[in-house]
Amino acid sequence: MNSERSKSYPLRRRAVVKELLAQRGDALVVAGLGAAAWDVTAAGDEPLNFPLWGAMGGAVPLGLGLALAQPSRRVLVITGDGEMLMGLGSLATVATQRPPNLAIVVLDNERYGETGMQLTHTAGGVDLGAIAAASGIPICRTVSDKKSFRSVIPQIQKEVGPLFFNIKIRAENLPLVLPPKDGAYLKDRFQLALLGTNTII
């Protein structure tokens, strides 16, 4: 395990997510629990964000169900390496379903950020981008510097998917920016914004 290297990675998580969401258009955003949800909220709390406060391992399959239900909308899953590691099997499920509108972005700081910054498997050499590629997701990239990150933003926003981007980010503790935590409220506001007030499903 390499306990030091991610402390000096150049990409910073809040700036990455802010830039990614600056031109989100009508994208639907699912955020995995912990720091990824705080990052998405720091970029702006929106009704079409669905930040998770639990359900670890569930961000990608939740994004998949949403992408299949809303094929005309871009679905962007933004999550952390620890959350992704708990649901690796869901990458295989995504690959078999091949939703063209789903993009998965992992913010990989090689740490469990909410529990004391313990190292995750990615600090020990586990390569999430390679796992996603081997699972059969057609477009997978690992990005670790600003120039490459900027170059992949249009892909993340527009390219035919499913896509998987592992963004190597600096390990850092940042001030919490918390979204609402009542799940029923998060669901209701999301559905109102997406489906409208008169939609009965």
Binding site: L66, A69, Q70, G89, S90, L194
Partner: peptide, 26 residues
């Protein structure tokens, strides 16, 4: 109907939550 085979059942719980958010019953 769209069918999806899962690697573990918990995936299905999250997947159908996403489906519901998007207006699909599962």
């Amino acid at each position: 109907m769209k069918t999806m085979v899962l690697t573990t059942e918990e995936e299905g719980v999250a997947l159908l939550a996403g489906a519901w958010l998007g207006g699909d019953r599962g």
